[in-house]
Write a protein that binds this DNA or RNA. Sequence first.
DNA 1: GTTAGCACTCAACACGCCTAAGTGCCAAGT
DNA 2: ACTTGGCACTTAGGCGTGTTGAGTGCTAAC
Lengths: 338, 338
Amino acid sequence: MSEPRRLEVLRAIVEDYVHSREPVGSKALVERHRLGVSSATIRNDMALLEEEGLITAPHTSSGRIPTDKGYRLFVDRIAEVKPLSAPEKRAIRALLESADDLDDVLDRTVRLLAQLTNQVAVVQYPHLGAASVRHIEFVLLAPGRVLVVLISTNGAVQQRVASVPAGTQEDELADLRHRFLGKVSGVRLPSVPQELAACTAELPPARQALGKSLAHSLEQLSGANREDRIVMAGTANLARSTLDFPLTIGPVLEALEEQVVMLRLLSEMEQDALGVSVRIGRENPYGGLAEASVIATGYGPDALAKVGILGPTRMDYPTTMAAVRAVARYLSRILDES
Amino acid sequence: MSEPRRLEVLRAIVEDYVHSREPVGSKALVERHRLGVSSATIRNDMALLEEEGLITAPHTSSGRIPTDKGYRLFVDRIAEVKPLSAPEKRAIRALLESADDLDDVLDRTVRLLAQLTNQVAVVQYPHLGAASVRHIEFVLLAPGRVLVVLISTNGAVQQRVASVPAGTQEDELADLRHRFLGKVSGVRLPSVPQELAACTAELPPARQALGKSLAHSLEQLSGANREDRIVMAGTANLARSTLDFPLTIGPVLEALEEQVVMLRLLSEMEQDALGVSVRIGRENPYGGLAEASVIATGYGPDALAKVGILGPTRMDYPTTMAAVRAVARYLSRILDES
DNA sequence: GTTAGCACTCAACACGCCTAAGTGCCAAGT
DNA sequence: ACTTGGCACTTAGGCGTGTTGAGTGCTAAC
């Protein structure tokens, strides 16, 4: 009952099962992998592994499949990361470098990752905490309605419509814009509210109402930032793995659509040493994802925003993890450059 | 073989089948609907309907189900639009009126429509042809990289990054912005390229390269407009109707993700007298949607942008059509107001 | 600690049978 | 000229039965 061989058996089970979707038995195992022992020995090992809760048998006399715990051990201790192929790397670079817009970059990223992994890919908008104010703009849309635009150093443009006193004139807006911009230009986004508070306090009484409304909008834009949005692609890949989800893929689709769920999930994932974080099956806080795994990692400044994929627990972890890591790396590089 | 009764039979078949998902037979029909005749007579009628290709029998001796052609006739000649319930109407109004941003409005709209119809809802960004230029802005992000922002009268903000000569300074940008804005302020978006062409021609030679690059970006923003984007919600609803899609929902998800496909589809749909346009099953140009129906209608200025839903051919057309129409109507109203 | 052998279990498949629902058609009725 | 009751016919689907094959656990020998 040597420890190393037991792990080797677990690895073989995981790999075969991921490959074939069928419970794998002792005999098939010794045939496909050259472990130097007979099927009976493997059977003993498998009994042990089952006792430890790493594998399980769907019914009395059938092969074993890995449990969540088994996958976890596999990911943590056994799997070695497979590097991407050279063509894949080239494809990543080519695709991402030809993008200009932030939206464009993220859009290409998810599509690429979805195609690379054959899973659903998600990417969170990059964290703007490190960015600062480049520009603000007030545009009078209609009496009492002003479009507030905030442009930050990383190229993100955010807008919001504010309600203001009905009689507001263009020149009032220009004046306020000048005042505000003087205060917050170059200021880090998280610090914007304080600066604005100081500024509005100094305003002449006639401008107070207008100023407060506009400042409020700016605070909203700078605070509750775009980082709370995600982009996704590859939902069609779920359909192919429909057999891996017990009843339907409904709950999974629901989770994906509820951005709040995905955002919490992503933010909870801390990356470990390898730089990629994995949530397997029921490790997952959300019930609808009990049969799903999420692989994600941070990217961009301080790696605060996340990019990753979601798929069935039965997935090729090493390859997928490599793809996620590679894409995140390129993505960070692109964002640094611009 | 009275014509009106045959249509009545078709209606009954469609309604029962939509309700039960099971082929409906002659006997069940006379029991559930009080047609004044016996099952034998119905059988004769059904034989006729089958000859006309309006219904079909899955196997030799089983009830009939409507064909695409049958649904078509049902929609065109038989169905009467069911008005929405008062609570539903109230919900629509409440939800949409509390939105401010254009993005926000569209987002709420699709979610609402998806929930109302239990199908996948899609909405196309409103056509900006009628809008005109409110403002433009150039922001120097990094040496050689300028963020070009175009704000139009309907509150849409669009941005793009342009590559410019490396040595470009802030004051050059300010100068060009002033020149451009003078020319295009208030101009309809489609006319922007001509105005800009005239303007760049007059530039001093030293500004030509920079001017052309910026003008090009502005043209892109004004021309290939946001109308070529769609927002969607309710994909999880597809999972529930998984039984209505023959093999998998894969092709449908693919179509939904390929915005190009959906955009072409929507743009090809002309609304008929009722104000709602319907594509049933194979009427649909895209193969992956052979078992799906699309219900859409225009909204906004000139009803050029589309809002609608996608679901299995076996759906409750009257109710769904009513929901689409109602939502489009409210949506138009909201956009008019802002 | 490993292995061969053996009895045992159980899903999956195939077969045959039966029933219920439904059809088409015909001859009689209005 | 329709409508109707009756009847023979078709077929999917449910149900029990038997068979097969992959796989297990255990024991005794190596």
